[in-house]
């Protein structure tokens, strides 16, 4: 899970989830705590979904 996806791709990660921002990849201080936790939850669920997806090459999971 990383914000600067081109770097993740360059260095060879196979399952990549784009995140919010470098200092808070799984957060967003502009949101209230409930919204922020929801956002974090959604991102982690994407990650779990990616782990359950077979891939043959480097894949960025946007949905």
């Amino acid at each position: 899970m990383a914000t600067i996806v081109p770097i993740s791709v360059s260095v060879g990660a196979n399952r990549i989830i784009p995140t919010v921002s470098i200092p808070y990849p799984l957060g967003n201080p502009k949101l209230n705590p409930v919204e922020e936790k929801n956002l974090r939850r959604q991102l982690v669920e994407k990650a779990l979904k990616a782990l359950q997806t077979d891939v043959t090459e480097q894949t960025v999971f946007t949905e």
Binding site: Y24, P25, L26, R40
Partner: peptide
Amino acid sequence: YANEDPDRVLPVDVLRDI
């Protein structure tokens, strides 16, 4: 931001819920 809430970098809170 990470010091305010470290879950923003290591998402322990939501993983515990999950």
